[in-house]
């Protein structure tokens, strides 16, 4: 299970990534995150992030009728949002490489000591 602290820094970028592919809504974002292995992330966790992204001009929101009955708020990415997503991707890749190298060395070291 991914800890909430670890999720905190990456969830915003991941949500931008999901919205960058197509216009989508809260429940679908939560389902997609779940399907990628993020675990159960409720709409209640996503909604404040969406509010922040909207406030910062990264996404826009429009209400439309849904097939389920109630209206749905659909979110789409703005040009600033796309730029932010690219920043996130490069930042995350750097972090991921750094962590991978560190873990490889650390775990490699442990294996060496065990031998």
């Amino acid at each position: 299970m991914i800890s909430s602290q670890m999720l905190k820094g990456t969830l915003e970028g991941c949500i931008l990534g999901i919205i960058s592919r197509k216009e989508t809504y809260g429940y679908e974002i939560s389902e997609q995150l779940g399907s990628y292995g993020f675990g159960k992330i409720t709409e209640g966790t996503i909604y404040p992030i969406l509010l922040r992204l909207e406030k910062n001009g990264m996404i826009t929101a429009t209400y439309r009728q849904s097939d389920m009955g109630p209206k749905r708020k659909y979110y789409s990415l703005t040009a600033e949002g796309m730029e932010e997503f690219h920043h996130f991707v490069s930042g995350y890749n750097e972090l991921s490489n750094a962590v991978s190298c560190l873990l490889q060395d650390t775990l490699g070291g442990e294996r060496y000591e065990k031998k």
């Binding site: 429940y27 209400y63 849904s66 389920m68 009955g69 109630p70």
Partner: peptide, 9 residues
């Protein structure tokens, strides 16, 4: 709307 959609599901 969020809760309402939840009820439908």
């Amino acid at each position: 709307n969020m809760i309402l959609e939840g009820e439908r599901r």
